[in-house]
Amino acid sequence: MAVTTVPVAAPPAAPAERERPRRRTSPTATVLLLLGAAYCLLPVLWVVIASTKSASELFNTFTFTPSVHLFDNIAFLSDYRDGLYWRWMVNSGIFAGVGAAASTLVSAMAGFALAKYDFRGKALAFNLVLAGVLVPSVILAVPQYLLLAKVGMTNTYWSVLLPSMISPYGIYLCRIFAAATVPNEVLEAARMDGAGDWRAFVRVALPMMRSGLVTVFLFQFVAIWNNYMLPFIMLGDDRLFPVTVGLSGLLNQGATQPAMYTSVVTGALLSIVPLVVLFLTLQRYWRVDLGAGAVKA
């Protein structure tokens, strides 16, 4: 997996960090930053503590008093309809993993073509990409559903995977990465050596764009993992649900069976663990400079 072989060079989107001179610390800055951190950690801290509470404690003990029922809650959630919750987690992993990998490859190919070739229709293709960035994808979900229903593809993995594979913003970023990291001379040299265009792309351009591609992959992975409306509309069978749709359905049941709330809270905690791990281990890639394209102009 490309993710484990971290390249030595810094990601192209990340500029060389300037030397940070030793400066006097400011208590005001420290306090403000800690306040921001406290605000952001509060709900996370709450869900960690709340998932240790039993159903009777959830609404009746002080909010931040932990209890001892975490493993009971996880076991109860895992038993719910033969481990349906874990199916949701696996589904989220499939949607986000496969969707992001495919989207990254599609974006890399398109971005490479737009950055490194001159051809008829190039301006049109690029303008289509830009227009695509401005179209809110969520608004497409209903017509996408109606079209896929005509070919009988709704309520399948494909109905969520295929629309997730096109990312105009990913193409836009890949074009910037290809232009910035793949020198024309290197491509020329590869052609001189008899490499075809595809070989030059796979063997020369992709490795050079690698750290940028990891960023595009992570962006798309999070976007798909977090997506709610598309799977919510496309899928009817709850065995195909990703964890977002599954948990919101479980919350709906809580209105009539309050005991479900404990499972909802525990499920919420477990569902954020994979992304938090992904974040903490790959922090160096979260540095995309959205203004990069504009700064260069």
Binding site: C40, L41, T244
Partner: peptide, 18 residues
């Protein structure tokens, strides 16, 4: 890191927690 963390939480889960 702490302030960036909510980005890892889907809107559905964030709404649930809040």
């Amino acid at each position: 890191t702490a302030i960036f963390l909510p980005y890892a939480v889907p809107a559905v889960i964030a709404s649930l927690l809040w």
